[in-house]
Design a protein around this nucleic acid. Structure first.
Lengths: 207, 207
DNA sequence: GTTTGTGAAACGATTCACAGCT
DNA sequence: AGCTGTGAATCGTTTCACAAAC
C-alpha cells in the first residue's frame, strides 16, 4: 500500500465519527460537502482522502453512510479487537481504563502493571494490578497487541525496550519523553506539556 | 510576527526540554547537531526553527545553553504564569490537577467546576469544586487565561461558548468533539480515540 | 443538475549546500 | 577548522477545476 499521510488518517477517523452520528440519525447518504462541513475541512480534501483507498461514492449522489462506515472501519483496522496492556496504574491510567470509548472501539485492557507495592495485588476494573518486574512472565502466554505507557519519564524507555522484546508492535506513550524503538514498532506520544506550550505560544503571539 | 508552523513550535518545546536537561548537567553550549540528535530531527531543522525567531548561536561554537533556554521560554510564553480553570472534575481532570508539570511550567489551576452534585462542594487539591451552572458568577472577578475542558462530548460545545463569552482565549479540549470558536480563541484538542485509531491503522497496514 | 474522482497547480515544510562568522 | 544562518531545491500536502458518472 502506498504511503498515506498521518493527517489523512486522522481525518478518516473524524469522518468515521461523523458518519456514525449520521447513521444513528438514519441518514442514508452524505456528500463530501456534508462530511467536510462539520469536520473542519473541505469537500475536495474529503474526496482526496477517500480516494487513497478506493472509490466509495456515487457521482451525483454522494456516499452511502453504512457502506462508508464499514469501509472506514476496515481501513482503520477497527473491525477487530486489540489486547492492550496498561503500564502504570496511576490517575491517568485509571481514567483510561474507565474511558468507555476504549472498549467501545475494540481496545480491551487485559493486563495492568505498576511498580508501586501499594497498588500491586489490588483489583482494578476486574483486573489485578501486577508487578512491572513480572512483565515478561505475566505476558508470556498473552498475545499483547498494544501497550499504553503511563509512567514517569525515566521509566518509559526501559519499559518500552522490554515491551518490544515481548513482541509488542504499538505503544501509546503518555510519558513526556521521545521513545526509541525499532522501525517495525509504532509509537504515538501524547505529551501534555507540549500541548500546553503550544497554547501558551499562541496566547502570547496573538491567537 | 510572521506565521510559524505549529510543527516548529512543537519542536521548540522539545528543544527546551532537552536544553533544561543539558543545563541541569552543567553543559554550557550545544550544537544544532546535539539538539537534533535526541530530539528526533536534523541539525538543519533545528537551525531553521530557531532562525524564525532570531540568531541565537555563535558560528563555530554553537548555542549557549542558558541563553537559549531563556530565549525559548520567552518565545513560548513560559516566562509568565497562567490562570487555568478546570471544567470537569472526573478522573482525567484529577490526574491533570496532580500532574506536577502543570504548575511547574506556569499553569495554575484556580477554579474547578462540575455538574455532579456529588462532587460540588468537595475540596480538591485546596480548591472547592463549584457548580458548572455558576461558571459566570464564579469567574466574574477571576481573570482566566485558559480553560481545560474534560467533559462528555455533548457538554463541551455549550461550555466552550460560555467560556468564550467570559473572555477565555485558550482552551485545551479533552472532549472527543471539534469545538467551534471565534478566530481569536485558540483550541487544542487531545482526542484519545484518534490516537488509538492511528495506531490501529498503522498496525493493520504495516507491522 | 448534482457530486465524485483526479490530474495539475499552488502552497507549505523540510532538506541541501554553502557563504560567512568565530 | 567548526558551526551557524539562510537562500535555493526538494519533497509532501492541500486546493483547484473539470471531465466523467449518475
Amino acid at each position: 500500500m502506498r504511503k498515506v499521510a498521518e493527517s489523512t488518517i486522522r481525518r478518516l477517523s473524524l469522518y468515521l465519527r461523523l458518519l456514525e452520528e449520521f447513521e444513528a440519525q438514519g441518514i442514508a447518504t452524505v456528500s463530501s460537502e456534508a462530511l467536510a462541513g462539520r469536520g473542519g475541512t473541505t469537500s475536495a480534501q474529503v474526496r482526496k482522502d477517500l480516494s487513497f483507498f478506493g472509490s466509495f461514492g456515487k457521482r451525483g449522489l454522494g456516499y452511502s453512510v453504512p457502506e462508508l462506515v464499514t469501509e472506514l472501519r476496515a481501513i482503520l483496522g477497527l473491525d477487530r479487537r486489540y489486547q492492550v496492556a496498561l503500564i502504570g496504574a496511576g490517575k491517568i491510567g485509571s481514567a483510561l481504563v474507565q474511558y468507555r470509548g476504549f472498549r467501545q472501539r475494540g481496545f480491551d485492557i487485559v493486563a495492568i502493571f505498576d511498580v508501586d507495592p501499594a497498588k500491586i495485588g489490588r483489583e482494578w476494573n476486574g483486573l489485578v494490578v501486577q508487578d512491572s518486574a513480572e512483565l515478561e512472565t505475566a505476558l508470556a502466554n498473552e498475545k499483547i497487541d498494544m501497550a499504553v505507557l503511563v509512567t514517569p519519564g525515566e521509566a518509559a524507555q526501559p519499559l518500552a525496550d522490554r515491551l518490544v522484546s515481548l513482541g509488542v508492535k504499538a505503544i501509546l506513550n503518555f510519558a513526556p519523553v521521545q521513545l526509541n524503538v525499532p522501525h517495525d514498532v509504532v509509537v504515538k506520544t501524547v505529551n501534555l506539556a507540549l500541548e500546553l506550550e503550544t497554547l501558551s505560544y499562541e496566547l502570547t503571539n496573538r491567537g
